[in-house]
Simulated scan of single mutants.
Amino acid sequence: MNKNISILGCGWLGKPLAIKLIEGGFSVKGSTTSISKFDEFKNLGISPFLISLENIAIEIKEFLTSEILIVALPSKNIEGFKKLIQFIEKSPVKKVLFISSTSVYVSNNNVVNEFSELQDIPLVAIENLLIKNKAFDTTIVRFAGLFGYDRKPGNFFKNGRTIPNPEGFVNMIHQDDCISILEKIIETNLWNTIFNACADTHPTRRAYYIKTKADLGNEPPVFAKAENTVFKIISNEKIKSILNYKFKYSDLMSFNYGSYDI
């Protein structure tokens, strides 16, 4: 396998992923929109590039001199992705790993899998641009709500903010599981497919935020009046079966969210 990887978006998820890939022997190029991060990236062994999807320039050609491109951007800029794809088509990139979100699914008050109904939103359009392109292979990973380390759910609703839909169910995934899953996709060479990635358990929003706030010693949560509960429960069966993956943080109610190590 070619050991060169480019990560477009070395932020909360992309940076620790880059660190793990470097530990695994990969040479990693990483993008940021802030030149002030260059020294940090270099110290971590990441080759830094200043790239903005909103203003892609010719410099992205050098960034794309890798076999695998991982896209870890929150941007929903369809036109920016169209321009990016034009550069990918002319580059050495043969495989794209696109980090998406389970927010693409319609809330149908049921369990949803990779074949369930999708919303008509920009993220779905971007997924389609990538997966339908025959110039490169694409795998899409739809992550549930992200948490871990400095991103603690007990801090999500602060200062008395009302938490809506309290009897709905949460779909969450820890940063460690995200990184392990992405690593395993690369290791096993699984392309041209779509995966949901989500912890095994789905407590109600009421139970989850009562616990996560209490674990941090924060104020008790304030919930909206429960009316017309709308939810979706994300199935992770495909990724567990095909990748033979066992989640590190599988039971969302079984650990203390106040721990500095979580």
Score class of each variant (00 low, 15 high):
F147M: 11
I233A: 03
T139H: 01
S31Y: 07
S116K: 02
A18S: 15
L17I: 10
K83P: 00
I68V: 15
I179S: 08
A226V: 04
Q119C: 10
V71M: 10
D261R: 10
N2L: 11
S259C: 09
K90Q: 15
T193Y: 00
I78K: 09
S259I: 00
D39P: 00
I185M: 07
I140V: 15
G217D: 06
S47L: 14
Y208A: 11
A72I: 05
E40G: 02
K246S: 14
F63C: 15
V106C: 08
K37Y: 06
I56C: 04
H174I: 07
T229V: 15
K152D: 11
D177C: 05
L130H: 00
G9C: 09
E67A: 12
K82T: 04
N109D: 14
D39H: 03
A207E: 15
F98C: 01
S36A: 13
T188V: 05
Y105F: 02
Y208S: 10
F98V: 01
N196H: 07
L50R: 06
D215Y: 02
M172L: 06
S75V: 07
N196V: 00
V96N: 09
T65D: 15
V112P: 07
T33L: 08
N55C: 05
N128R: 07
A214M: 07
S116D: 10
T33I: 12
F26D: 13
E54L: 02
S250W: 04
K90E: 15
R151V: 12
Q175H: 04
E117H: 01
E114T: 04
D251P: 02
Y260K: 14
F81K: 00
F38D: 12
F156R: 15
V104S: 03
I51E: 11
M253W: 04
P92M: 08
L8M: 15
I99E: 09
C198F: 01
S100M: 05
M1I: 06
Q86I: 04
C178E: 13
P153G: 08
L13P: 08
S75D: 12
L182Y: 00
I163H: 00
I78E: 15
F136K: 08
G145M: 01
I22S: 13
E127R: 02
P74C: 12
E183Y: 03
I121T: 13
V124C: 04
K3D: 14
I173Q: 01
P48H: 09
K238S: 07
A197F: 06
S27P: 02
I194W: 01
I233Y: 06
I60G: 14
K20L: 10
K240G: 08
N196D: 01
L84V: 09
I56N: 03
I7T: 12
G145K: 03
V112N: 11
E54S: 15
T138D: 09
T212P: 11
P166S: 04
A72L: 09
P164C: 06
S180H: 03
G148D: 11
M1C: 10
T162N: 03
A18Q: 13
I78G: 10
E54P: 02
K83R: 14
I85H: 11
I121R: 12
K225F: 00
F156V: 10
S47C: 07
S91F: 03
R142P: 00
D251G: 00
F231T: 05
F38C: 02
D150E: 15
A72E: 11
Q86W: 00
